[in-house]
Write a protein that binds this DNA or RNA. Sequence first.
DNA 1: CACACATTCAACCAATTGGTTGACAGTCAC
DNA 2: GTGACTGTCAACCAATTGGTTGAATGTGTG
Lengths: 122, 122
Amino acid sequence: MVEQDSPQLDSVFHALSDNTRRRMLRDLADGERTVGQLAEPFAMSLAAASKHIKVLESAGLIRREVRGRTHLCRLDPGPLSNAQRWLTFYEAFWTDRLSVLDRLLRESPLPAPPTTDKDADP
Amino acid sequence: MVEQDSPQLDSVFHALSDNTRRRMLRDLADGERTVGQLAEPFAMSLAAASKHIKVLESAGLIRREVRGRTHLCRLDPGPLSNAQRWLTFYEAFWTDRLSVLDRLLRESPLPAPPTTDKDADP
DNA sequence: CACACATTCAACCAATTGGTTGACAGTCAC
DNA sequence: GTGACTGTCAACCAATTGGTTGAATGTGTG
């Protein structure tokens, strides 16, 4: 299995480990937002929100465009696809059981086990 | 969109934000392991590895069964499916563009925008 | 040009994280 | 029953995280 960028996964999953940041991504899914707009729904200082935005930016999940005094932010979902791919490896473990059960009920042959590379994140 | 368990997503993504823990999950994908076996590949103390295992356990990603003096650990992938589902919401953002581009090239109609609930993680 | 706006920065703080070491607890083997 | 094994716990430490406040910076407006 292709080795994935571990530091990127570190920062992406870290960025996603906070509800505030996930909600910010959710807002951005509806379109671009300024820093102030992203901060508005949260009961925290603008500086704190700005820190969260910086974490998202550092993880490569958003991009900002400075227009005058406003910073416009947009989703940059590429790194999420890497996280998704990492998780997809494990999908077999919560769906295969159902498949196995389903096939056992129908007397179908069991699926072959997946082949994987060693010494690397999936 | 169904509101997802935010504290669980917090802990699951947090657990995944560390390469050591991801590699432990990877090892467990190959079958059950003892705590000592999980710790073995890492250049850290057994106590440190034990802490990582506890983080995975607290996030609900693994279960342990104590047999005598050995603790056997297994994947418990259910919470990963929640993380996957959260990420799947954003899949549209890295695939839809390609779809849009693809369809534009073929003069196909554009896809309808997804409908979402407000005030909740996707 | 002065003031307002948008946002970041720096310093601070408390809490958390991730590692260490040595002690401890439960179990197993001889 | 004693020593070994497996693994956790507690205390410690340094670094990081996530929040605050007030200051600073760059830009826009009247």
